[in-house]
């Protein structure tokens, strides 16, 4: 009897390990492949890979473009999203709040390519050109629901007793929210922002009809087109040239590194959220 149970136990454990392995396998495979295929490209081209333009065999403009887009979209999206997050936290029962929360749910799931189409319609066509502004705008729209939801969640995680304490000192709604509660929640809010940026830095579809792409010269203005690493990879893969393909592998590895570079701080700061 005992033996049968032990066998069942072992079988179950083995099954779980196997399942976990299968689930994680693609991730490891991707990382492995990127390193194997991308590393040689970067090594052979050296620092020029990071600083040169496409015809020089480098992805410098794309890297700068990604950062510019991340920065601009944060500038546009975060403040509003933050305030929206605070609103739905502070007044969870109002009709407006319910409506906004529904809207945020939709925005979270909305097809990103349609966001691109929308921004193309309202910005690109009237301006007559692809632009960093349009790209940032599209990314901001995608980023906002994440920031709002994470902000509201971080605020909600603050123990109610700190709210009571603040009010009991005679502070009003505003002072309580901005001077006491937000600082307490700042780690959670910051983590949410990082997560939103990480998501948006890897987006391709919304940039297709908005940013345009710019890889031979460095970005020179917000109403001018701009490139981004994911967009570049998309473009290069479709080219017949094998040099371009090699560049794509290198760029993919760089994108992975950027992603890890944002991801690790997120993990670290999540660990430290202790109240």
């Amino acid at each position: 009897m005992l033996n049968f149970r032990k066998i069942k136990d072992k079988l179950f454990l083995t099954f779980i390990f196997f399942g976990a392995f299968i689930a994680l396998f693609p991730l490891f495979h991707i990382i492995f492949t990127l390193i194997i295929k991308g590393m040689p490209v970067i090594i052979s081209r050296g620092t020029m890979f990071f600083t040169g333009t496409l015809s020089q065999g480098g992805i410098g403009p794309a890297i700068v473009g990604t950062f510019i887009l991340a920065f601009l979209s944060s500038l546009i999206g975060i403040p509003i999203a933050f305030l929206v997050g605070l609103y739905i936290y502070e007044y969870p029962d109002s009709k407006v709040s319910e409506f906004v929360r529904g809207l945020l749910q939709i925005m979270l799931e909305f097809p990103t390519i349609l966001v691109g189409v929308f921004v193309m319609d309202i910005l690109v066509i009237p301006m007559g050109t692809y632009s960093a502004l349009a790209g940032a705008f599209a990314l901001a729209i995608i980023m906002m629901p994440y920031v709002s939801v994470y902000t509201a969640e971080a605020m909600r995680n603050i123990p109610y007793t700190y709210r009571e304490a603040s009010f009991s000192l005679g502070l009003n709604c505003f002072k309580t929210a901005f001077r006491i509660l937000v600082p307490i929640a700042k780690r959670g809010i910051f983590t949410g922002i990082l997560i939103a940026i990480a998501k948006v830095a890897g987006e391709t579809a919304p940039l297709l009809f908005t940013a345009g792409g710019l890889y031979e010269i460095y970005p020179h203005g917000i109403s001018a087109p701009v490139g981004a690493i994911p967009l570049l990879i998309y473009t290069l893969i479709q080219s017949p040239s094998s040099t371009d393909h090699a560049t794509a592998w290198g760029a993919s590895l760089v994108l992975l590194l950027v992603f890890i570079g944002v991801f690790i701080p997120i993990r670290l700061s999540l660990k430290e959220v202790k109240l």
Partner: peptide, 15 residues
Amino acid sequence: RRQVGMVFQYPNPFP
């Protein structure tokens, strides 16, 4: 609320 102060069940100095 300033005249009538309150102390709570869980010690809650702002962390």
